[in-house]
Design a protein around this nucleic acid. Structure first.
Lengths: 140, 140
DNA sequence: GTAATGTCTGTAGTCACTACAGGGTCAAGA
DNA sequence: TCTTGACCCTGTAGTGACTACAGACATTAC
């Protein structure tokens, strides 16, 4: 412990391990400005504290819920700058929820068609493959 | 019509218009080898025929069903090289169907959590925003 | 003749990472 | 003291599937 800046700090690998995230991802979030740059030791090593860890967990949980980094940036700004950000945060989530529902609807359409086509293919011994015919649009 | 290569050929813009695809996308598919390079007029303009259009439609339909370009490349190879590709094509589709079902499951998890959180936020006048607390993991 | 439109090429940007290459630093063991 | 191996640093390039643009050439209409 040769530098007082290292007091209670953890390095990038430990932060990544504790949060279950990839080491490089942490640096990436720093680069794009979602995580603040941590103080450095004399040798230039990053030294994180619990506030960094908390913020990183926020980002990771939001990613698990499918928020884009831009949406997360907006949510973090609400956290940082506002007293009562609940209405704005809820709106961000509501828009995102609508996006997700639209994606689910798209995927369900795909699922329905594929399920039907795979069933038509059966054991795969047909001379004209229903999947391929469907894609060519000749037996849609 | 100064060049016999243009006989019955259409240009890129017309192909894109007829298939509802983006002009640049056609060139991209050519670049990555999904569409064969069409013959050129004397001035170097691409000249497509109905076979190109048919193949492009195949690709576009497969994209609508969520197949990746690599999967599509595999399907097109089956079309080009095999007599009875149905079993192999069906397997590609079955794997893809499983992927789609996994994605739907992921999105439904997100949807469930978001729906719950947005409902908790209510009219957005709470002093502690349930969404933000959830993301910080303090009220999960 | 010229203006407007079309086409050509290659390159760079998008999103959210991930994976290097090529170096510096540090702690423990021989 | 030296070395070994594990860690850390930076910047850059790659992923997938496009999309957009710059700068040049061709064609068409008037």
């Amino acid at each position: 412990m040769r530098d007082h800046a290292t007091v209670k700090g953890m390095q990038r690998a430990e932060l990544a391990r504790r949060t279950g995230s990839n080491l490089e991802t942490v640096r990436y979030y720093e680069k794009v400005g979602l995580l603040p740059e941590p103080p450095r030791t004399a040798a230039g090593y990053r030294s994180y504290d619990v506030a960094h860890e908390r913020r990183l967990r926020f980002i990771l949980r939001a990613r698990e819920l499918g928020f884009s980094l831009e949406e997360i940036r907006g949510l973090l700004r609400l956290v940082d700058e506002r007293d009562r950000p609940c209405a704005e945060a809820r709106d961000v989530a509501a828009v995102h929820l609508a996006d997700i529902r639209a994606k689910i609807a798209d995927l369900r359409r795909m699922e329905r068609v594929l399920k039907h086509v795979v069933a038509q293919c059966g054991d795969g011994t047909l001379p004209e493959c229903p999947l391929i015919e469907t894609l060519f649009g000749e037996a849609a």
